[in-house]
Write a protein that binds this DNA or RNA. Structure first.
Lengths: 152, 152
DNA sequence: TTAAAAAAAGATATTTGTGTCCTTTTTTGC
DNA sequence: GCAAAAAAGGACACAAATATCTTTTTTTAA
């Protein structure tokens, strides 16, 4: 479905949104450990995410690191995919036809269009913050980080 | 969503099912032209499809070529994906977590599981023959082959 | 039985994705 | 200003996916 790049991008962004803030920036070491991804490769992906769509923010030097602005937290998950150039999953024909549409459908078009619609909805209507909220309800995982329900 | 290999596998199989039969086998040249795919690469993929799951059948020599048996026409589309080792799309976690399940869900699990379920349904419940039938209703395309409604 | 046709098989090339490492730039605190 | 910390940037390495070409095997028909 998604490339490693996109998977790491999603995981890293969610992790940073979860555990980081402008006051408490996260280093690449912690992020890679937290989401169980290769450190240097993940660093490259974070560069994409800071440069495209400003999904994540970064500061260099001591006490530097990565965090998400409030603005970024409101972005749809799709913005992460766009930043790593993989948003086409939600538009592409399942058989890979260059032209495939209502007026020129492939044999699977009728069935697949509903799935595509829901994929689109999921990535467009869900904000990064919503995933954070969901996680914080408890019992969610993003590999080495477990969501723990806060005591009442 | 799917690799080129899987896309060509689907297109080629549908094409052969549409235009070929045991009496009228199709050559690799025609197939590649018909689905707009690289010839030699497609030939490799057809080898996979003849060897795994017996999705397509082949005969060498003059008047040889590819065709689908009646048995093969009844196979689910998933059998094509299995033959090219890409059936995992319908089970994998969208964030790429090795473990992701109801009891250990990723932050997108709740939303994505419904989509995954429908993907699974589509590939498991749809037979190759059903796609052929759909195509023959007319006005469907598989790149260079246009579905033409038969005159009444 | 031989030549031609066609897929199978093998070898190799190219491109893209994934991953690592080293150097540079920026920032901070002393 | 200087040393340390951290991300940014660049170069490279490796693997997988994609693609092409050549040779071999099988089959048919003349």
């Amino acid at each position: 479905m998604l490339s490693k790049t996109a998977e790491y991008a999603l995981r890293a962004t969610i992790y940073i949104a979860l555990k980081g803030s402008e006051e408490n920036k996260l280093g690449i070491e912690e992020i890679a450990l937290g989401i169980d991804s290769p450190k240097s490769f993940t660093a490259k992906i974070l560069q994409l995410l800071t440069q495209n769509n400003r999904v994540i923010s970064s500061v260099r030097g001591p006490n530097g690191g990565f965090y998400l602005t409030d603005r970024a937290r409101k972005l749809p998950v799709k913005a992460i995919l766009e930043a790593v150039e993989e948003a086409s999953v939600i538009t592409k024909c399942v058989l890979g036809l260059k032209e495939c549409s209502e007026t020129r459908p492939c044999p699977m078009h009728t069935q697949y269009k509903n799935i595509k619609k829901q994929l689109k909805q999921m990535f467009e209507k869900t904000s990064i913050q919503q995933l954070v909220d969901e996680f914080n309800k408890g019992n969610y995982f993003i590999d080495n980080l477990k969501g723990v329900r806060k005591p009442c």
